[in-house]
C-alpha cells in the first residue's frame, strides 16, 4: 500500500507486476498459437496499469473479484504464476485442478474471490462479500473489477445500488477498454463516461487514465479510504485499451489498425519506466534487471507447469458438492 512513485522498492514492485502480466499473457498467446494450449482466453495486454494500480492500494487481506479478462487481476493480487499457468495447461496442480481454466481462476488465500465467465457476474458477488465483512465487523475492502460491457447488464445496476444504499466497503472498478467484444462504448452508452452513472446511485464517480499506474493508484487510494471508513462505494473508471482481440475468434473488423497502433503508443509499462527513470527512482539497468527477472520467472512457471500431472478425471463426480 504505497504510491508506485514513492520509493524505489515500490516502483520496482509495480513495474515487475506489470511485466509479469504482460509476459504471462504473451506466453499464453504464444502457447495457444502453437496449439499447446486448449480452450480460449481473453488477454489484457495494454491494460496492465489498471490492476497493478488498484491492487497497490489494497491491503493483502482485502479482496477482489475479477472477470473473464482476469489474468492481470490475479497476478496483481499476488497469485502464483506457476499455478495459473498449470490451470491454463489443464494440469492437476492448477488453481482449479483443470475444472475452471482461464475464466475461473480464484486464489482465496490472496483474497481473489474469483474470475467470472459471465459479464457482470462478479459485481453482485463483490457486493455480498463486502456485506459479509460489514456484518462481521471486519474492516476489509473489496475491489470489484468489470469491463465497460458489464455496465449495461442489470446485475451492475442492482448490485451497485445495493452497495450504495448499504454504504458497503467496496470499490467498483470499470476497466473501460472501449469495446464490449465488438460493440463500442460510443454505441452502447448515451453518456460519455461510465463514471457519470455513479450519480444515479449517489456515489462518487471518477474517470482516470487507466494506463497511468500512478493515477489509478491515487484514485483507488481515495476510494479505498472512503470504503474502509464506512462512507460507501466509489465507481472508478480506468480508461484503457486492449491491444489484442476480444478472444481467439476476433478478426478486429470493428476497429482500425490506426486506432490500435495509436493506443500501443500509449503503452502503460513504457510510460511508467520513463517516469521512474525521470524521477530518479530506478536506473535503466534496474529496469533491465526487472525485465530479465520476469522473463526467467515466466520460463520457470511454464516449465514447471508443463511437467505437472494432467488434470485427473477420476474424482470429477466428487467435485460438485462440498462435504460438511
Amino acid at each position: 500500500m504505497a504510491h508506485p512513485l514513492s520509493d524505489p522498492a515500490t516502483a520496482r514492485q509495480a513495474l515487475a507486476t506489470m511485466w509479469e502480466i504482460r509476459r504471462f499473457e504473451e506466453a499464453v498467446d504464444d502457447l495457444f498459437a502453437r496449439g499447446l494450449m486448449h480452450g480460449t482466453m481473453h488477454l489484457s495486454i495494454g491494460q496492465e496499469a489498471s490492476p497493478t494500480g488498484v491492487c497497490l492500494a489494497l491491503r493483502d487481506d482485502d479482496a477482489i473479484t475479477s472477470t473473464h479478462r482476469g489474468h492481470g487481476h490475479c497476478i496483481a493480487k499476488g497469485a502464483d504464476l506457476t499455478r495459473m499457468m498449470a490451470e491454463l495447461l489443464a494440469k492437476e496442480t492448477g488453481y482449479c485442478r483443470g475444472r475452471g481454466g482461464s475464466m475461473h481462476i480464484a486464489d482465496v488465500d490472496t483474497g481473489n474471490l474469483g474470475a467470472n465467465g459471465i459479464v457482470a457476474g462478479g459485481i453482485p458477488i463483490a457486493t455480498g462479500a463486502a456485506l459479509a465483512y460489514r456484518l462481521r465487523g471486519d474492516d476489509k475492502v473489496v475491489a470489484c473489477f468489470f469491463g465497460d460491457g458489464a455496465v449495461n447488464e442489470g446485475a451492475f445496476h442492482e448490485a451497485v445500488n445495493l452497495g450504495a444504499i448499504w454504504k458497503l466497503p467496496v470499490v467498483y472498478i470499470c476497466e473501460n477498454n472501449k469495446y464490449g467484444m465488438s460493440f463500442s462504448t460510443e454505441k452502447s452508452m448515451a453518456v460519455e463516461n461510465v463514471a457519470e452513472k455513479a450519480a444515479g446511485y449517489g456515489m462518487p464517480g471518477v474517470t482516470v487514465d487507466g494506463n497511468d499506474v500512478a493515477a489509478v493508484y491515487e484514485a483507488m487510494e481515495t476510494a479505498v479510504a472512503r470504503a474502509r471508513s464506512g462512507e460507501g462505494p466509489t465507481l472508478l473508471e480506468n480508461v484503457t485499451y486492449r491491444w489484442k482481440g476480444h478472444s481467439k475468434s476476433d478478426k478486429n473488423l470493428y476497429r482500425t489498425r490506426d486506432e490500435i497502433s495509436e493506443w500501443q503508443g500509449r503503452d502503460p509499462i513504457v510510460a511508467f519506466e520513463t517516469r521512474v527513470v525521470e524521477a530518479g527512482l530506478l536506473g535503466r539497468d534496474d529496469i533491465a534487471a526487472v525485465r530479465d527477472e520476469v522473463v526467467q520467472k515466466l520460463r520457470a512457471a511454464v516449465r514447471e507447469a508443463n511437467s505437472a500431472p494432467d488434470a485427473d478425471p477420476s474424482d470429477l463426480l466428487d467435485s460438485v458438492y462440498a462435504s460438511a
Binding site: 455480498g128 462479500a129 456485506l131 442492482e158 444504499i165
Partner: peptide, 22 residues
C-alpha cells in the same frame, strides 16, 4: 432489500463465499 432479485441472490453468493451463511 430493494426489489432486485439478481442483486440480492448475488449478494448472498458473495457473502457465503466470504464466510457467512445467508
Amino acid at each position: 432489500t430493494p426489489i432486485s432479485e439478481l442483486g440480492i441472490v448475488g449478494a448472498a453468493v458473495g457473502a457465503a463465499l466470504a464466510g457467512m451463511r445467508p
